[in-house]
């Protein structure tokens, strides 16, 4: 059974490593500040005993007042997973730091989020629309998008 890494367990470790990086720790997810995200993920990926080397998926949710980007990482070795979240509080050109340097698999999923949700990923080398065509009006998965 892939078990969740208890948030409390990891939060103390993360706070020691990156003071101020963890915004909030829920029961099953850790909310990380946007600017610390790549460093935290890098740490989770490489630190001994954690080794979250497998990125399951990235997605984004529009909560009107903020966008939430959700990452789920799995450690194949220890069979554990962790859910990381980060938020951006602006609707006008929200942006998050990219993870493409850490996981190659993040590339197209970030492009997908950029295309459908309109969140840009800073540092992504080829950030352009993936499903819809250039010139499509708006980002359809946003809650206020209207045809």
């Amino acid at each position: 059974m892939t078990t969740a890494l208890a948030a409390t367990e990891i939060v103390s470790q993360l706070s020691a490593q990156f003071p101020g990086a963890v915004e909030e720790a829920g029961t099953d997810a850790v909310l990380v500040k946007g600017e610390h995200l790549p460093a935290v993920v890098e740490y989770l990926k490489t630190a001994a005993g954690l080794k979250f080397d497998y990125l399951n998926f990235i997605t984004a949710v529009d909560y009107y007042s903020y966008f939430e980007v959700v990452y789920r990482l799995t450690s194949l070795e220890f069979n554990r997973y962790i859910v990381l979240k980060t938020r951006c509080y602006t609707r006008n050109k929200p942006s998050v730091l990219t993870l493409t340097g850490i996981y190659q698999g993040a590339d197209w999923q970030e492009r997908e989020i950029y295309d459908l949700m309109g969140i840009s990923f800073k540092g992504h080398k080829n950030l352009k629309r993936i499903f819809l065509w250039e010139g499509f009006d708006g980002h359809p998965l946003r809650k206020d998008w209207n045809r």
Partner: peptide
């Protein structure tokens, strides 16, 4: 690639 994409977008529109 960008020019190709923009061109494609125009055709679609």
């Amino acid at each position: 690639a960008h020019e190709l994409d923009v061109h494609e977008g125009q055709i679609i529109e």
